[in-house]
């Protein structure tokens, strides 16, 4: 029984938690951009890739200088630098590209197409600078708890391993989310962002400067994208193309939670992550511990092969859209 629980924790809960935190951070960026700029930013996945790339380069720089984070990955020290460069880049694209359409009050679809153009450029830049190969940049300690230690402590047959990156992911995500909600809820700038998202015309009538709100939003979105990208890269590995593919689960998370709702983005991230992990995990091990030996299952008890994880996020997305068009946490419907 306990073994089943531990196996469940080890193979479903902990990975799902880490993945969910990464998705939630990504979805937060998408949802903020949607709330303030009112379009679905297709370049977000590549913004994550860009931020991660800058952080990796900075990590390599630090490592060559002999600086390391000790037990923690060096990338955490390089992270602020990655955020800074990404924020500058994103502000540049806003100034050069998006602002023009904002002034024109272009339709959201046009902005989506514009973001496709930005996506192409960013994707190309990332490939141009760091290439398409897989880059591993995690260093420091590998595990917080190893399976062996866990077994020794508890005397259970099944081990629980928690990787450092998983721990860092969850801790960082909690810190970032708390900071973000404090910013949105308590500071003058944060409140003005919420006001702008809620009712743009009235925000203008109150003297809120739209350009400033937009800039702050881009900076936050860049920071969230970089953090999410680096955490994902540390946890798995960095490959330019996987970030583009993350776009689908991230959008699914943002929409399931309700586009424009930060709380919804977080909930959506975990809903998507846990569904993906649950549906694609082979439950044989857990079930074997639960049932008497002679009833142990022959098959893997896997609902779907891992290659179909996109299908899972997608199915949830469609179900939510059909039955709750504004998402779990009442996002914007128009």
């Amino acid at each position: 029984m306990l073994n089943a629980l531990v196996a469940f924790l080890n193979f479903v809960f902990v990975p799902g938690l880490a993945y969910g935190a990464q998705l939630a951070l990504g979805a937060l960026g998408v949802t903020l951009i949607y709330g303030i700029l009112r379009f679905s930013n297709f370049a977000h996945g590549d913004t994550m890739a860009f931020g991660t790339m800058v952080t990796i380069l900075a990590t390599w720089g630090l490592q060559s200088l002999g600086i390391s984070g000790g037990v923690l990955p060096t990338a955490l020290i390089a992270l602020p630098f990655g955020i800074l460069v990404t924020a500058l880049f994103v502000l540049g694209t806003d100034r050069l590209v998006y602002r023009f359409y904002r002034k024109q009050k272009a339709a959201p679809t046009i902005l989506v197409i514009v973001s496709l153009g930005v996506m192409f450029v960013m994707n190309g830049l990332v490939r141009f600078i760091i290439g398409v190969e897989e880059q591993a940049f995690a260093d420091g300690g590998r595990f917080l708890i190893t399976a062996g230690d866990f077994k020794a402590w508890t005397g259970l047959k099944e081990g629980l391993a928690i990787r450092t990156t998983q721990g860092i992911t969850v801790v960082t995500a909690v810190i970032v989310v708390v900071a973000l909600f404090w910013f949105l809820g308590k500071t003058r700038t944060g409140k003005s962002m919420r006001a702008f998202s809620d009712n743009e015309d009235l925000a203008l009538l109150s003297g809120i400067n739209p350009e400033r709100v937009v800039q702050v939003t881009w900076i936050i979105a860049a920071a969230l994208a970089t953090i999410a990208g680096v955490l994902y890269g540390l946890d798995k590995s960095f490959k330019a193309f996987t970030y583009f593919q993350l776009l689908l689960p991230i959008f699914a998370a943002a929409i399931v939670g309700g586009l424009g709702s930060p709380l919804g983005a977080i909930a959506g991230g975990f809903v998507i992550a846990f569904s993906e992990v649950t549906v694609t995990y082979a439950w044989k091990k857990v079930v074997t511990y639960l049932v008497p030996a002679d009833m142990a299952p022959d098959g893997l008890l896997q609902l779907m092969s891992t290659d179909y994880k996109f299908a899972v996020s997608f199915a949830i997305l469609i179900i939510v859209l059909l039955f709750m068009p504004t998402g779990l946490f009442k996002g914007k419907s128009v």
Partner: peptide, 20 residues
């Protein structure tokens, strides 16, 4: 299933279908 949705939801839905 998806045509009743808003334009950018349709975009994301079709993006997903293609991946599937």
């Amino acid at each position: 299933t998806a045509l009743g949705l808003r334009s950018d939801y349709l975009a994301i839905a079709t993006l997903g279908i293609a991946e599937i």
